[in-house]
Design a protein around this nucleic acid. Structure first.
Lengths: 128, 128
DNA sequence: TAACATCTATTACGATTGTAGGTGGACTGG
DNA sequence: CCAGTCCACCTACAATCGTAATAGATGTTA
């Protein structure tokens, strides 16, 4: 698998690395909100599993702590996520777009960007 | 749980019911493409689990076979799916919209509908 | 250097998902 | 009515995920 499937928690951990750069387990753990923060060893387990999946790797040590860095990009992971999502729906996109647009808390800029994309897309569809 | 979480295979099974109406297990199984079709008992297991989750129920019998009907609507399940999907991304919607629009194989009509929705949405955003 | 804090490594366990085998009961065609 | 087919029901099992405890190594500090 070039792009391993990542679960929600695994994604949150990757997110810490994508956002904060190479980090130790403790640092990753502390990016979770105090309320409902997983135990240190829980994060540790997930990091180890992500290592096996080649989603991240040990860079070096500081003191006795390993520092981990991501091996896959946020964009790549996101693409994989969207693909899986679409796979769940067997192509039935239209009602989903609607709900996404409604539920997605889009900013005005998001809306403008999306409109531009759609305009370009419909142009390409009409004049191939 | 008012809306149980459904896995991919569970969704495919519900899809058979949503598309074809109340069906027997054999009928559901046969909606899968021959290539890679799950065993009869695999479908059976999933149907039983969906029953426990109250996603469907036994309607009546024909011969010795049970006929199952859906208890939750495609729309409701889809909403749940989209919510989970958004939860995976922690609100980072913008790049995802783009990829969705690109990856989604949208028809011209889908594009038009989405554009209209976006126009309405941006209107509501500018003039609240 | 002795105590304390911190990290690593290993192990465990329950829930969920996908997969299916086996056993025995019900129905159907001859 | 009896053999073959189809179905229901139970059981099993491996993989993944979330959760974490424990034990042992290492680094820090008074």
């Amino acid at each position: 698998m070039r792009l391993p499937k990542l679960s929600k928690l695994e994604l949150q951990i990757m997110d810490a690395l994508w956002s904060c750069g190479p980090s130790a387990i403790r640092e990753i753990q502390e990016t979770f909100p105090q309320k409902g923060r997983p135990a240190y060893t829980t994060v540790q387990t997930m990091v180890y599993r992500l290592e096996i999946k080649k989603a991240l790797r040990r860079m070096h040590k500081i003191g006795n702590a390993h520092i981990f860095e991501p091996l896959i990009s946020r964009d790549a992971a996101q693409r994989r996520l969207v693909d899986d999502f679409l796979g769940m729906l067997g192509g039935r996109m239209q009602p989903v777009m609607a709900q996404l647009i409604e539920a997605g808390n889009l900013t005005s800029k998001d809306v403008a960007d999306a409109e531009k994309l759609l305009r370009d897309l419909s142009k390409r569809k009409k004049e191939p």
